[in-house]
Design a binder for these strands. Structure first.
Length: 424
DNA sequence: TCTGGGGTCCTAGGACCC
DNA sequence: TCTGGGGTCCTAGGACCC
């Protein structure tokens, strides 16, 4: 009996999250923006129908948005993250193994069972998520992850499917693959599409039948796997145990250009604090730290640089990481440039085990207790209740611009929605 | 005119994903 | 004037070793 995968994908996830607390926006065009309100990263079906593309810069569509009264939201990751967790919790309550693939998607491995009514299972699961969380999802079912992705696409686009589509033992599979453009196949990006088109491969069906030797040579093993998966041969397994991350990045485009090193220091301290918190949350430590700063991509005076430090020992202590990061920043900084972006990357991430430097000691117990206390307070009272070495200057040019952010409806007591039952 | 063979590790860059 | 952020995996090439 073959394994069966289901891909559960939340429909227009960020938009659905916003609509959950603003139901009057159902049926109306809605978009959600990236950090700093720069690009459009999520669109309702109505916004898609107006021709607003994914990733479009907001300023290019301001007129269209005004003309059609499109509702615009800044991104609210506290809200989306919390609702995502709730969706995943519902999925975990079924018999399936669950791999959380992204904030709005999960692969399920369905129990192998001869008499399994997959369509009914999927329809019920979809309904359960809607009822318990309020987010609409689509479900695609197939024998490989790549095919499940395609099944999901049909579940979402074909209204007859009603949000569920099953490609297992489907006699129409090749017909369907013939209608899918090759660049819509999971794992085939723009670069590969160019190469494939040049060879006369335009659809998922063409790719399924492509010559494996040529594929292996041109698109490496990655492309080779995709072709096998289209041929019903599973190559990409379910990863239901979350692995230790290989890297952790915290970076931001600044709200405004930054020229002063003191402002850059503040930004780096802030990003390092966030990254250190991510480490502790996952119970891991980092051995290598990289700081990078860059001017705007098309700035007249372009400058971009980064520096790496290998720490004496893996750590998740905020002050230790800040010290190292500021050291990097000092040697990176060149006066006279207008910086637009900065960030920090942590690598060499380990869990549990430590290779100590010959002359150094492990992080002290006091330090660990201090960090645990810090995290607890910030969790209870909100991020930045306690923070490191900030000047608290009123002027923070690096801070994000988010002019149209919705409240943290589900994660802050003060912003909890209030229901007025008297109607007054 | 002539200059070995085999291996590991690390890094940068490319490509892709959501 | 204004274009996000956070990841993974693969490969080629350099450095180094015996």
């Amino acid at each position: 009996m073959k394994k069966v995968f289901a891909l559960v994908d939340c429909n227009n996830f960020y938009v659905s999250c916003e609509r959950l607390f603003r139901p009057e926006l159902n049926g109306k065009p809605v978009v959600v923006l990236s950090n700093n309100d720069g690009c459009i990263v999520a669109r309702s079906n109505e916004a898609k129908a107006l021709g607003i593309p994914m990733g479009a810069p907001l300023f290019q569509y301001k007129a269209l948005i005004a003309r059609h009264n499109v509702q615009v939201f800044s991104s609210n990751y506290a809200l989306y993250g919390d609702l995502s967790c709730r969706v995943m919790d519902v999925l975990r309550q079924t018999e399936a193994d669950v791999e959380v693939y992204s904030i709005d998607e999960a692969f399920l491995s369905l129990p192998v069972n001869k008499n399994w009514d997959r369509d009914r299972y999927a329809a019920e699961l979809k309904e359960r998520v809607r009822k318990h969380v309020g987010i609409p999802v689509s479900i695609g079912i197939a024998t490989t992850k790549t095919l499940a992705k395609i099944a999901n696409r049909i579940a979402k686009k074909d209204t007859r499917a009603q949000g569920v589509f099953d490609l297992v033992d489907n006699s129409q599979t090749d017909n369907i693959l013939g209608k899918i453009k090759v660049n819509d196949v999971w794992g085939v990006g723009s670069r590969s599409t160019e190469k494939l088109n040049r060879r006369g491969i335009y659809t998922a069906l063409d790719l399924k039948r492509a010559d494996q030797t040529w594929i292996r040579k041109t698109l490496t093993v990655v492309g080779s796997r995709t072709v096998m998966e289209l041929n019903d041969i599973p190559c990409i397994a379910l990863q239901n145990a979350p692995a230790c991350p290989k890297s952790i990045v915290t970076s931001r485009t600044f709200g405004q250009s930054v020229t002063d090193i003191d402002h850059l220091r503040e930004a780096v301290i802030s990003y390092t604090s966030i990254a250190a918190e991510k480490l502790r949350k996952q119970g891991v430590e980092a051995e290598t730290l990289n700081v990078f700063i860059t001017t705007g991509l098309f700035a007249q005076q372009y400058y971009s640089n980064n520096q790496t430090i290998t720490l004496a020992r893996p750590t998740s202590s905020t002050p230790e990481l800040i010290n190292a990061a500021l050291h990097c920043l000092k040697s990176l900084y060149r006066p006279g440039y207008r910086y637009r972006k900065g960030g920090i990357m942590l690598t060499g991430i380990v869990k549990g085990y430590k290779q100590l430097d010959l002359f150094s000691l492990a992080t002290s117990k006091e330090d660990k207790v201090l960090m645990a206390g810090l995290d607890m307070i910030n969790k209870k009272w909100g991020r930045n209740t306690i923070q490191y070495g900030m000047t608290k200057a009123a002027n923070k040019p690096w801070a994000m611009q988010q002019s149209q952010k919705s409240p943290a409806y589900t994660t802050k007591w003060q912003e909890l929605p209030v229901i007025n039952s008297t109607g007054s």
